[in-house]
Computed example of a mutant assay.
Amino acid sequence: MLSRPGPAGAIVDGVYAHASRPLPTPAAARLTAAIGRPDALPPPLLMLLGMLSTQVGAAVAKQLFGATSAGGTTALRLGLGALVLLVVVRPGLRLGWRAAGLVAAFGVAMAAMNLAFYAALDRVPLGVAVTVGFAGPLLVSLLGSRRIADVLWAVLAGAGVLLLAGLGGVGVDALGMALCGLIALGWAGYVLLGKALATRVPGTRGLALGMTAGALCVLPFGVATAGVELLDPRVLALGLGVALLSSVLPYSAELAALRRMPAQVFAVLLSLEPAIAALVGTLLLGELLAWPQLAGVGCVVAAALGATLARRDEG
């Protein structure tokens, strides 16, 4: 997905640990050129556009399932996204053993997260998959805290996940929810490994190499489940659209926004992602969530906002 989780600590120090360091100038210039002139737009608008792009990309990916499989969609998304980043970033391949191991582990986490995400989308609404996945690193961050307030936010997020899982009496696909649990675990691992990778391989070099490793991991699944359909021009075009919408464009827009706004404001806006996913699922896919599910989304968003704002007040 390359979506982003959690409260401020998990967001800025985790997935976006690599984004808190400036891109090398040539790479920054290429990414900026790829999305027009992001600095001409207000940072909050860039953030919203980035999140909207991510979720629209997921909606487009769901349309691919009629022509290929979830594994094929994952292979196209990571493979084409990795190709774009390799061209833009041009990362060197010389790494120490520890850095190479982190790149490989990061790629495996990315592959597992994306495979689970697209497989889940075949069974549950977009808003449910994103919200449960979002709750994974959020809960990891909050449960690692010794503050009572953070424990309460974790309980609220957990209640939201239970509502999404059918606590409110809404029928859910059991396998789909199990896959959502795998998304949450993969997303949490992606955050933790992304933070470690950023210290070893700064800038976007680690992201480009990690996505390449992830693409290699999912390629056998894509070939096994989709075969030659992956080479169909229409499927390739849609796959490129998914890669751009879900990876390149949101990453570029949000990186530009992060450079021009406080990290806490960035985190507050990012907490709205599950709500945006639910909205996109409703408008583009016709996925109307039941009231208990909407309440679940609201609980997770409120927990992320509450934890973020509480840390800002303490700072």
Rank of each mutant, 00 (worst) to 15 (best):
A112Q: 03
A174T: 15
A112E: 00
S141Q: 15
A112V: 04
W187D: 07
V140F: 06
F134Q: 13
A159G: 15
L115A: 10
G136D: 13
F117D: 05
V140H: 07
V172N: 13
A165W: 11
I148F: 07
G186A: 03
L126W: 06
A120C: 04
Y118M: 13
A184Q: 09
V161M: 07
L175C: 01
C180E: 14
L156Y: 01
A157I: 01
V161A: 11
W187M: 03
M177D: 13
G160S: 02
R147G: 03
Y118D: 14
G171R: 08
A165R: 09
A112L: 10
L143E: 10
L167Q: 14
V128I: 15
G127A: 02
V191Y: 00
D150Q: 06
L143S: 08
V130W: 01
A165Y: 06
G166Q: 01
L182D: 03
A149D: 15
R146E: 09
D173F: 00
L138A: 14
A119C: 05
W153A: 09
G127H: 10
A112D: 07
G169N: 14
I148A: 12
V155W: 01
A119N: 09
A149L: 13
L139E: 10
V132H: 12
G168N: 15
A188W: 02
P125V: 13
L192R: 11
V191G: 02
L167V: 12
A178T: 10
S145C: 06
G176R: 13
L162R: 06
V151T: 12
G166Y: 12
G127N: 08
S145M: 08
V170I: 00
S145N: 10
C180S: 15
R123A: 11
S141C: 10
R123K: 14
R123D: 14
W187H: 10
V151M: 04
V140L: 07
N114R: 03
A149E: 15
L164S: 11
L143T: 15
V170K: 06
G171Q: 12
A157G: 12
I183Q: 11
L152Q: 10
G168H: 15
A149F: 09
R123W: 14
A184V: 00
V151R: 15
G127K: 01
V155R: 02
L193T: 02
G133L: 01
A159V: 05
F117L: 04
G169S: 11
